[in-house]
Simulated assay, not measured.
Amino acid sequence: MTIFASHRMVRATPPHAEAMEPDSEFSRILLALTIGLIFGIGAYAVGLPLPWMLGPMIGNTCAAMLRMPVRAPAGLRPFVIPVIGVMLGSGVTAEVFGLLGSWVLTLLLLPVFLACAAGLSFLVYRRIGGYDPVSAYYAAMPGGLNEMMLLGAEAGGDERRIALAHAARILIVITFVALFFGLILGVSSNGTGASTWVALDAISLSDYIILGACAVIGAWGGKRLRLPAAPVFGPLILSGATHILGWVTVAPPTLFIIAAQITIGTIIGTRFVGATFAEIRRDLLLATMSSLAMLCVAVGFAEIIALQSGIPLSQAFLAYSPGGLAEMSLLALALEQDITYVSIMHVIRITLVIAAAPLVFAVLLKSHGK
């Protein structure tokens, strides 16, 4: 396992929870996916931004708070994540290489943004939430959920609090980003990233074989090469290469995009299974304040990037929004933004946070004589 496995699902379940019978576990997963599908359809019907992800997130978060017997479809994630990488790679074009020069400012400002965003988030968890310094520090880091939870627990922090903080952050960030795009920037979307429906039979058998190989080989090769976020990034690279070379020229079927969003939204919502209502309410409140602070900083930095480099404000904002890689990349796809730009910036963000957080923490401990 590499340190970049940040996007695996982590449930906030009590350590003493008993193992469930296979039939019971399957029925709980099926219930969670059913709730996700129903709420996705409902969100689409009422015109909610990014309905196929927000709907399942909201539905399963409510189900978890109501103690309904739902369980995350964790077994689907190893299959869905490489498929997401393949879908993201379909948006890579040869023209992207001509835009690399305009990304320099985004890369240079990224560490400064992370320091500002994490600093404000730390103040929220420490001063307002009353978290101990270690838990507040690792809860505030906009990195991978699993990595921050493990590093925080190793440093003596509250593992459960850190896990809930990051689960709540991802939930809140995705919700606010979708609303920001729809209500502030006026970017509308049907939630699939395609203006027209792409049927399953719009792709030939050879296309399916090539893209399937990109998913399998990309995920396996990415792990062997220790690429950051390998299950997404490996398939993305191979899929992008096949599209640039013209081996595949069609967009992914719309049903695949919808299914991926429903699965991810369901997993995010069910992360709160096992937590008490008081914990969920408290962590959502703190995560809302923390996420709003980070998103306000993201808007400010995005404005600078947009003015200085000509990159659209919407894309710069999405690249700096502190959500998960798979989730934010899906947002880029659904909102028809530059997938390559957004995905690469999030890969670098997570890499920087995971690499730098323990080092900065050690320096802070030493400076305080602890």
Rank of each mutant, 00 (worst) to 15 (best):
F233Q: 10
I244G: 01
E279L: 14
L236Y: 15
G221W: 06
W247S: 03
A219Q: 08
A259F: 15
T263I: 14
R226Q: 13
A219D: 02
A251T: 12
L227E: 08
P228F: 06
T266M: 05
P231G: 13
L284E: 07
A260N: 09
G265C: 06
T263L: 03
T263E: 03
R282L: 11
I264D: 04
L286W: 08
L286G: 08
P231T: 14
A278Q: 14
G218H: 03
I267V: 15
T263W: 06
L284R: 04
A229F: 07
V248W: 00
V232R: 02
P231D: 10
G212R: 01
A230M: 06
L236D: 04
I237R: 10
A275N: 07
C214Y: 03
F277P: 01
Q261S: 11
T249V: 09
L238Q: 02
A259T: 13
G218C: 08
A251L: 14
V250G: 06
I258Q: 02
L238V: 09
P253H: 02
R226C: 12
A278D: 14
L286Q: 03
I237C: 14
G221I: 10
T288S: 14
G234D: 05
L286R: 01
R226T: 09
F272C: 09
A229W: 03
L285E: 09
G240R: 04
A287Q: 10
F256P: 06
I280Q: 10
R281C: 10
I262S: 06
L255A: 15
T263M: 03
I267P: 04
F277W: 11
V216C: 05
A251K: 13
T254Y: 03
D283T: 12
T266W: 07
I258M: 07
A287P: 10
R226A: 11
V216T: 09
R281E: 12
V232M: 14
I280P: 11
P253E: 00
A241H: 00
F272Y: 15
A260K: 07
G274A: 11
W247I: 14
L236H: 02
L245N: 05
A215P: 02
I258T: 06
L227H: 05
W247A: 10
P252T: 02
A213C: 15
T242W: 01
F277N: 12
G218N: 03
G221E: 07
F272W: 05
G222N: 09
R226N: 13
W247T: 04
L245F: 14
A287T: 11
S239Q: 01
Q261K: 09
V273S: 07
I257F: 02
T270P: 01
G218F: 07
F233S: 11
I264V: 15
A260E: 06
A251Q: 12
S239V: 07
G274N: 09
R224M: 11
P231K: 12
P231V: 11
L225F: 14
I257Y: 01
T270C: 15
R281G: 13
P252V: 04
L284V: 13
I267C: 13
A287G: 15
L225R: 13
A230R: 08
I237Y: 04
G269R: 01
V248Q: 00
L245P: 04
V248Y: 01
A241D: 00
A215W: 01
V216Q: 00
S239G: 02
K223W: 11
P252Y: 00
E279S: 12
G222A: 08
H243T: 00
W247N: 03
